[in-house]
Amino acid sequence: MIGVAYAAEDAGHGDGHGGGTGLPDPMHQFEIKRLINLDVFGFDASFTNSGLFMVIAAALITLFTLFAMRKGALVPGRLQSVAEISYEFVANMVRDNVGTAGMKYFPFIFTLFMFVLALNMLGMVPYSFTVTSHIIVTFALAAFIFIGVTIIGFWKHGIGFLKFFVPSGVPFVMLPLLVVIEVISYLTRPVSLSVRLFANMMAGHTMLKVFGSFVVALGLLGGWAALAFMVAFTGLELLVAFLQAYVFAILTCIYLNDALHMH
């Protein structure tokens, strides 16, 4: 549906067309559009379509939690159940992966999970924009988590946190090599964390767009096959949207556990 929507939009624009194929450019949907130009002390802080969907996601989460809990009923209604299930889901995730010491960071993990989930799901709405399909957003989140977790590690264990990079029970001669490998694997965490989310979202939406343009290009005769594929793929994308938010949150928990308990 998203593909169809953008295909129709692109037909109107004309500048979104790929090099001479006649099909709309599938990357056009990721373009940042400045809605309000803002300049703060020479720094570009413009309100873009990306910023708009971040605001929508934050507002939706806030309104949802507050509206669902407005009665705070002992026997929850449907909406309150959903809010409580989200809470318990993330709380159990933190408890299981980090332990009770990690409950201090539960509000952050909850916000992170709900924010990424909301952004991913909003991306599935036709004509919308997928904030998490931009590497800079996912990398900023991952880098913040990486730096925060590293600070927590050094704050909890002092210089002893460096022992985290020394695997136990290996021959002494192997240590220099293994320490280097451990450090590299630790430093690649923010990259793998951010690229996983970004690549999943971008690839999925690009696929939807490509097949959406096939529906139009193949017309009434062959378009049905592409349309059927898109319907199925949209279902898969909804699953991916949830799964990637879950993976992002649970990996944050695992990194946090490493920092707090050092394996």
Partner: peptide
């Protein structure tokens, strides 16, 4: 395009 996204990410995520 990175600047505007980072600014609004910090704002929205922080407030949320």
């Amino acid at each position: 395009d990175w600047g505007p996204q980072l600014v609004w990410l910090v704002l929205t995520f922080g407030i949320l």
